Computed example of a mutant assay.
Amino acid sequence: MIRLAPELGGRRESGRIRRLRQMLRDLGKRVPVSQRFRDGLEHAAMSTAAALAAYLPTQALGLREGFWAAITAISVVQSEFGATRTTARDQFVGAAIGGVIGVAVVLVTGQTLLSYALSAGLSVLCAWLFNVASAARLAGITATIILLVPHPGTSAQHMMLSRVTEVSWGVTVAIAIVWLVARLDRRTRP
């Protein structure tokens, strides 16, 4: 039996692939608690280090809402460097698309509920059109931040630049932390 699989972007998935995916899930459940604890502890340490390293210098960098850098760093950190790079790309591209579209819509139509709906929808659509569907939800989230988060005394353009800068900083820190851990891990393992 063949069905459409959302994980494969709508491409057909064979029964064999489905069974292999289920076997991987089952294997993951059989990992001993001690190994899950070690893996979880390592991931928690990386996430915490990345969040702190992303947040602490934000005031000195002129970023008023450094928590966005910390949130981004936590969401980008993955157990493997390749997965971290992919997530980082999605975060940056999604923020850029959502930010640019959010500002453009505000400049053309003003800041209304209809403008929000338009910018969120266009952001998701553009991510798909640029062939980065994995960044679509992040584009919509950034458009939401631009249009729905109050920012008195700050223009939408300034808010967009701030968000993209904060996301970029969080992405950079997360990549650096995971890269460093991967390098150290290779040196300490036989």
Score class of each variant (00 low, 15 high):
Met1Gln: 04
Ile2Pro: 06
Ile2Met: 09
Arg3Ala: 13
Leu4Arg: 15
Ala5Asp: 14
Leu8Gly: 02
Arg11Gly: 03
Arg12Ser: 07
Glu13Leu: 09
Ser14Tyr: 08
Arg16Glu: 05
Arg16Trp: 15
Arg19Ser: 12
Leu20Asn: 08
Met23Phe: 12
Leu24Cys: 03
Leu24His: 10
Arg25Leu: 13
Gly28Thr: 10
Arg30Ala: 15
Arg30Gly: 06
Val31Asn: 02
Val33Met: 14
Gln35Thr: 14
Arg36Ala: 08
Arg36Asn: 07
Asp39Pro: 01
Glu42Ala: 15
His43Gly: 04
Ala44Pro: 04
Ala49Pro: 00
Leu52Asp: 00
Ala53Asn: 11
Ala53Val: 04
Ala53Ser: 09
Ala54Val: 02
Tyr55Ile: 01
Tyr55Ala: 05
Tyr55Gln: 04
Leu56Thr: 00
Gln59Ile: 04
Leu63Val: 01
Gly66Tyr: 00
Ile71Pro: 00
Ala73Gln: 05
Ala73Gly: 03
Ala73Ser: 01
Ile74Arg: 14
Ser75Phe: 13
Val76Phe: 11
Val77Cys: 10
Gly82Thr: 10
Ala83Ile: 00
Thr84Phe: 12
Thr84Gln: 08
Thr87Ala: 10
Thr87Asp: 06
Ala88Cys: 12
Asp90Phe: 13
Val93Thr: 12
Gly94Leu: 03
Gly94Asn: 05
Gly94Glu: 01
Ala96His: 01
Ile97Cys: 00
Ile97His: 06
Gly102Asp: 02
Val108His: 07
Val108Gly: 03
Val108Tyr: 09
Gln111Ser: 11
Leu114Pro: 00
Ser115Pro: 03
Leu118Gln: 05
Leu118Phe: 11
Ser119Leu: 09
Gly121Tyr: 11
Gly121Met: 10
Leu122Gly: 01
Val124Gln: 06
Val124Ile: 15
Cys126Ala: 15
Phe130Tyr: 06
Phe130Met: 15
Asn131Thr: 08
Val132Thr: 14
Ala133Met: 08
Ala133Leu: 09
Ser134Gly: 13
Ala136Leu: 12
Ala136Asp: 06
Arg137Pro: 02
Arg137Phe: 13
Ala139Thr: 11
Thr144Gln: 02
Thr144Arg: 12
Ile145Trp: 13
Ile146Pro: 00
Val149Ser: 13
His151Val: 02
Gly153Asp: 09
Gly153Ser: 09
Thr154Ser: 13
Thr154Tyr: 11
Ser155Ile: 10
Gln157Asn: 02
Gln157Ala: 15
Met160His: 04
Ser162Thr: 06
Arg163Leu: 13
Val164Gly: 02
Ser168Gly: 15
Ser168Pro: 02
Trp169Ala: 00
Ala174Asp: 03
Ile175Val: 15
Arg186His: 11
